[in-house]
Design a binder for these strands. Structure first.
Lengths: 187, 187
DNA sequence: GTCTATAGGATGATAGAC
DNA sequence: GTCTATCATCCTATAGAC
């Protein structure tokens, strides 16, 4: 059977993050209580507090894992001056991150935009991540239209990778369509 | 001085909706308590319950005001079979709604997507509104790419009308850029 | 229409036993 | 590492006086 069904002692921290990410994304950060997460895992709330010192820290743990991947992408982008082709490759790599391990975190961030917009450290982390991406992709004096195009290209990738997207088709179909649309958007 | 500063007795219902919309949009629906709204208005929580029978009903009131405008747009769209030009005009009209009276509601819906995704009646209302828009704009057998294009065009309009958008420029600049980008997206 | 007062419950978080 | 028990706080919502 699936390994997810086994008890998996010793990696409770990871299991907490898994369940939390899933619920934060589908039900929302605010609407997900620690009680729910604990019950899902078959432990008590108090157990969660042994692994994380607050609810926000559970989210921060998830964020920093993907922040590392975004930092790598930004660093790669900064190796050369950005061209149209390079920006397209950047979107492609972002798609890989979104579909890869921990990519659900980006979904989670997008789905909870407002909820995470007034949360101190978490908000700063997200804002910094986005800012770096935009700065690496476009010159600072880029036109409003180009900035908007770049943001929409990124959103196309995120929207299309939503599992319950009402676009239809398989995940692969949607990812392919997203790349085509994104390519036509990127300045 | 501004009329907003005057006491305006007798339209408490509207004032509640104004304040609620503002806070739902900027701070999030879940993170906005009725206590905050009441204090903002200089009344007590109990007073809110005289005008609305629940928190959700405050939101529903806002939603139905914009649902009417969307219904009109859908009806107009259905007068003729949709063409590229007609879809562009649809996006333009949607932009008018977004910037016009009650357009903030669309912002609010977008900003609180997850929070409003599991709320019974409210969720249905939103889902129905979106579904009608997509159905009116595209044939039901449209390709995934075309569906995605249409959705991104709408999102471009919404993103650009966000007041605190980090795109820079005036609201008019951003609206103009959004129309250009949307036009290049619409199938 | 607006108030005071309060019910009734959920939540994030902590203390301390095992 | 996980538990029981509990705290303090906040929330939505209601009852009833004015």
């Amino acid at each position: 059977m699936a390994e997810a069904a086994t008890r998996r002692r010793g990696d409770t921290r990871e299991r907490i993050q898994e369940v939390a990410l899933e619920r934060f994304t589908s039900n929302g950060y605010d609407q997900t209580s620690l009680r729910e997460i604990a019950e899902d895992l078959g432990v008590t709330k108090a157990a969660l507090y042994y692994h994380f010192k607050s609810k926000e820290e559970i989210l921060d743990g998830l964020l920093s894992s993907v922040a590392f991947q975004v930092d790598e992408l930004v660093a790669w982008m900064r190796e050369e001056t950005p061209t149209h082709e390079r920006r397209i490759e950047m979107i492609r790599r972002l798609g890989d991150i979104t579909r890869g391990a921990g990519g659900g975190v980006l979904q989670c961030v997008q789905q909870n935009e407002v909820a995470l917009a007034n949360m101190g450290r978490t908000t700063e982390l997200i804002h910094h991540m986005k800012q770096q991406l935009w700065d690496a992709a476009l010159p600072e004096d880029a036109s409003i239209e180009d900035k908007l195009r770049m943001r929409m290209a990124v959103m196309a990738v995120l929207v299309s990778s939503k599992p319950d997207s009402d676009l239809g088709g398989t995940a692969e179909d949607r990812a392919a369509a997203a790349q085509v649309v994104a390519a036509s958007l990127v300045p």
